[in-house]
Design a protein around this nucleic acid. Structure first.
Length: 313
DNA sequence: AAGCCATCCAACCGCGTGCAT
DNA sequence: TATGCACGCGGTTGGATGGCT
C-alpha cells in the first residue's frame, strides 16, 4: 500500500497553530466543509499539510468539543470501555460525546493508568497484577509432578513451562485485542458470554492456570479457591463509587450475579473480564453459524488443539 | 531567584486500511 | 491483481507549565 507523502513535503509549517491559522481553518470548514483534507490547506490558504489540519480540527477546533475535566461518569465509562476495547481510543471516544480520542488517550495515560497501577491493577488487563515470579512455585510444583529429578532437566522443563505460560498469556491477550467488532462493543453483550467465561475459568482451572487467572469468575466469587500462593486476592468491588445510572451507561449499571447477589461494579463485573474472553472467537457467529451450537466449542478445546496446551490438560 | 523535575497535552509520526484506478 | 492515494488510528514526542528544593 502506498504511503501518503503528505507530511514529507518541505516548506509546510509544523508546530503550534496560531490564532490566525485557527481562524482560517474554522472559516473555511464552516463555509465549505472539510472535503478533501489533502486539498484543504491550499484552498483555505494555510501553509500546513492536510493531516495537520485534520488533527487541529478534530482535536481542537471542532465546535462540539467538550472542554474541561473529565467527570466521574466519563472516567467510569472510559475504564469500562477500556476493559473491553483496550487502547481503541476512537471507539471509546464514540461513547463520550464531545471528547476526542486524543483527549481520552492523554487522560488515560496521565491519570487512569496510574490510578489503576496504584490500586494494584494491571492497566491493560484490568486485573489484579500478577507477575511471572508470583507463579514460580506453581511451575516448580508442576515440574516435580513430572518427576524431573535431574536439576538440569528440571531447569529446562521449568523454562519450557515458563515459555508455555507466556505463550498462553499471549494468546489470551491477543484475543482481548481482537474483541473490537461492533457485535462485541456493547458491554451488555458481555453478559451473554459469561457462561462461556465461567466454563473457561473452570476448564483452565488447573493449579498452574490459577496463578494467572487471578480474578475469580464472578459466579464463583465466594467459593473461589485460594490462588496459587495460598492467598486470596482481595478484590475491591467498589473501586469507583459513582453508580452508572444515566442513559449512556445504562448497560453498565450496577448489577448482580445470578447466584451470589453480589453487586458488581462495572469495572469488575462480568463484563470486566473480557481480556480473557474474545467473544468473536467464542461465538463464531459470523463464520460458523449459530452461536449456541458453536459455543459448545469453547476456548479450552480450541487451545488444547495447540500442542503446547495439551500439557496443561 | 534559579535550577531541576514531573506533569500535561497539543501535535507529530508512522502504519494499516479502504477505495479508486 | 497491483499500485497509489487519502484517511484514520495509536504511539510517541516535546514544549509549556507548575511545584519543589
Amino acid at each position: 500500500m502506498g504511503r501518503s507523502p503528505c507530511c514529507d513535503e518541505n516548506g509546510l509549517k509544523k508546530g503550534p497553530w496560531t490564532p490566525e491559522e485557527d481562524q482560517r481553518l474554522v472559516d473555511y470548514i464552516t463555509k465549505h466543509g472539510h472535503g478533501s483534507w489533502r486539498t484543504l490547506p491550499k484552498l483555505a490558504g494555510l501553509n500546513r499539510c492536510g493531516k495537520s489540519c485534520r488533527l487541529r480540527w478534530t482535536n481542537y477546533l471542532r465546535p462540539d468539543i467538550k472542554r474541561g475535566k473529565f467527570s466521574q461518569e466519563e472516567e467510569q465509562t472510559i475504564l469500562n470501555l477500556h476493559s473491553v476495547l483496550g487502547n481503541k481510543w476512537s471507539a471509546i471516544a464514540t461513547h463520550l460525546p464531545g471528547r476526542t480520542d486524543n483527549e481520552i488517550k492523554n487522560f488515560w495515560n496521565t491519570h487512569l493508568k496510574k490510578k489503576l497501577i496504584q490500586m494494584g491493577f494491571d492497566p491493560m488487563t484490568h486485573r489484579p497484577r500478577t507477575d511471572f515470579f508470583a507463579a514460580l512455585p506453581q511451575l516448580l510444583a508442576l515440574a516435580s509432578l513430572h518427576g524431573l529429578a535431574d536439576p538440569s532437566i528440571r531447569l529446562q522443563a521449568e523454562a519450557a513451562q515458563a515459555a508455555k505460560i507466556q505463550y498462553l498469556q499471549g494468546i489470551l491477550q491477543s484475543a482481548a485485542a481482537i474483541s473490537t467488532s461492533p457485535s462485541t462493543n456493547s458491554i451488555s453483550s458481555m453478559g451473554a458470554a459469561s457462561t462461556d467465561l465461567d466454563n473457561i475459568s473452570c476448564d483452565l482451572g488447573s493449579p498452574l492456570m490459577g496463578a494467572f487467572t487471578s480474578v475469580p469468575s464472578p459466579s464463583n466469587v465466594h467459593d473461589q479457591q485460594p490462588l496459587g500462593l495460598g492467598e486470596e486476592i482481595d478484590i475491591p468491588y467498589s473501586l469507583f463509587e459513582v453508580p452508572m445510572n444515566n442513559d449512556t451507561h445504562e448497560q453498565c449499571s450496577l448489577s448482580y450475579t445470578d447466584d451470589s447477589k453480589i453487586p458488581m461494579t462495572p469495572l469488575l463485573s462480568q463484563s470486566s473480564l473480557p481480556p480473557l474472553t474474545d467473544f468473536s472467537l467464542l461465538n463464531h457467529e459470523d463464520a460458523c453459524g449459530t452461536s449456541d451450537e458453536k459455543n459448545a466449542t469453547s476456548w479450552p478445546e480450541l487451545l488444547l488443539d495447540d500442542p503446547f496446551m495439551t500439557d496443561f490438560a
